[in-house]
Computed example of a mutant assay.
Amino acid sequence: MNQKSCVFCTEIVTKRNAAIIYEDDLTMAFMDNAPVEQGHVLVIPKSHYSNILDIPVDIYSAVHLVARKLAPAILLAINAEALNIGQNNGRCANQRVMHYHLHMIPRKCGREIEWIRKILTTEELKQTSQKIKKTLDGEIDTTKIKIV
């Protein structure tokens, strides 16, 4: 159910051309290659669905459960105090890749998001992904994580 014209289907799911931090049978999470903040992660279904009206409820739930699982690991790894989780539907809503996906953007207090995408090297993305994976692979005591 992948689309040949979709960069997520061809480059991420098929060729694994990304700094992947999590994967299961239905979903993948990887570093955004043009993040607005350090630790900007995308969570996608492996199958192609264009938007919220297209994605089946069970796959939608799987994507959002992965976001819930990753949230504490991202917060700890990036030493963030908060987290924006967003999802755009359609070109008019600023959706640039027409494959359903969530943005997870770690935030630090006192720092405004500029919404300007940064271009990072593959090595920079891998370093951040490794920090998150190490935190994810360890035991995370979520009682010690506070969102401000």
Rank of each mutant, 00 (worst) to 15 (best):
L42V: 04
I140S: 04
K144T: 15
I105A: 06
H64F: 11
G110K: 06
V97C: 02
T121V: 09
Q130T: 13
T10Y: 05
K69E: 11
M28R: 02
S5W: 13
D137A: 14
K131Y: 07
P45T: 08
V41R: 07
I105H: 01
A80N: 08
K126S: 04
R91N: 12
Q3T: 07
R117C: 08
V57W: 12
T122M: 01
E81P: 10
H103N: 04
S47W: 10
S47I: 08
K4W: 07
A67D: 01
Q127C: 11
A73H: 00
G110V: 08
F30A: 07
M1T: 14
V66E: 00
E81D: 15
E139I: 15
W115S: 04
Q127F: 12
T135A: 13
L70A: 01
L125W: 00
T122W: 02
R68W: 00
H64L: 09
D25V: 11
K144R: 13
S5R: 12
D25G: 10
E23A: 05
K133R: 15
K133F: 11
D24A: 06
R68K: 15
L26W: 05
K133D: 09
L75E: 02
K144C: 09
N89S: 15
T10M: 11
H101M: 09
I44Q: 04
T27L: 06
Q3Y: 10
C92R: 15
M1E: 13
D25I: 10
A19I: 07
A80E: 05
S129R: 00
T121E: 08
R96C: 12
S5A: 12
A29C: 12
I59Q: 14
M31G: 03
G39V: 02
R96F: 12
L120F: 01
I74L: 10
R111S: 13
K108W: 09
E123S: 03
I105Y: 02
Q127N: 14
M104A: 07
N89W: 05
V63P: 07
N79C: 10
T128K: 06
F8E: 03
H40I: 09
K118C: 02
K108A: 07
I116R: 15
E37V: 11
I140V: 13
L53S: 13
P72M: 05
